[in-house]
Design a protein around this nucleic acid. Structure first.
Lengths: 113, 113
DNA sequence: CGACGATATCGAAGTCGGTCGATCCGGCGC
DNA sequence: GCGCCGGATCGACCGACTTCGATATCGTCG
C-alpha cells in the first residue's frame, strides 16, 4: 500500500495547444489520464479532492458505491500508482488525499493558456 | 468518418476540488479522459492542437509514428468519438482540428480554481 | 496473546483495447 | 470508365483491464 511510486508523476509542460507533447513525456501523462478514464475512479478522486480537510477515510468511500470493497481498493491503487493520490494508514483506517502537484500539470496541459 | 456524435461531449462543471463529480456526469468525462489515456493519442492530439492554422492533414500525422496507417486511423476515431477532435474531408485529404469546447471543461475540472 | 474489523493482495473469469493485414470507399487523373 | 492513392473499416489475435470471492496483513481491543 506504500504507494510504490514506480515512476515519476507527470512533469509540468506547456499546454498542448502551444507545443506537441514529447514522446517520453507522453507516457506518464497518458497513464494519469488513463487512471481518470473510469467513471468510478473519477468519482473517487473527486470525493477525495472535494472533501473538507482534504482527506477521506476509505470506510467513507466504500459504502457510496455498488461494487465490492476489493474493487474500491483496486481503483484506489490505480489512482495511487498514477500519482494522483496518496494513502496513509493511521491506526485502523487508511486516509487518502489528492496530490495537486500531479493534478495541476494535467489541467495546464489541456488549458488554452 | 462523419464524426458520428453518438453522445454529448462533457458538460462544463466546477473543479473536482470544489464538489464531487455527479454520477451521470462522470460517464462522458471519463470517456474523454480515457481517450487521452494513451501516449500515441496524446501525441496525436497535441500535434493537431499545436499545429499552425489549427488543423492537420492525416498524411502529415502518419509518417511521424511507427505504427500502421489503420492504427493511426483507429486512434483518430477514438479521439473523434470522445468529442475531442473533428475531421473533415477536403478533396483527397482529411483534416483534423481540436474541439476546444470539449478540452476546456476537462482542464477546468482538474484545475484548482 | 487471540479474536476481530478494516484494507490490501491474490487468482480466476469475462470483457475491453491496441495492433495488424486485408479490404472497402471516395476523389483525382488519365 | 479505369486505376491509383489517401484514408477508413473489418476481422482476428493477444495482452491488459475490471470485477469478484478468498485470503493475507496490519492495528486494536479484550
Amino acid at each position: 500500500m506504500t504507494t510504490a511510486p514506480l515512476d515519476l508523476p507527470p512533469a509540468r509542460c506547456p499546454p498542448l495547444v502551444r507545443e506537441p507533447v514529447d514522446e517520453a513525456a507522453a507516457v506518464p501523462l497518458a497513464r494519469a489520464f488513463k487512471a481518470l478514464g473510469d467513471p468510478l475512479r473519477l468519482r473517487l478522486l473527486s470525493l477525495i479532492a472535494a472533501h473538507e480537510g482534504g482527506e477521506v477515510c476509505v470506510c467513507d468511500l466504500t459504502p457510496r458505491f455498488d461494487v465490492s470493497a476489493p474493487t474500491i481498493s483496486h481503483h484506489l491503487k490505480v489512482l495511487r500508482e498514477a500519482g494522483l493520490i496518496t494513502g496513509e494508514r493511521r491506526g485502523t483506517w487508511v486516509y487518502y488525499r489528492v496530490r495537486p502537484e500531479t493534478l495541476g500539470p494535467l489541467s495546464d496541459l489541456l488549458g488554452t493558456g
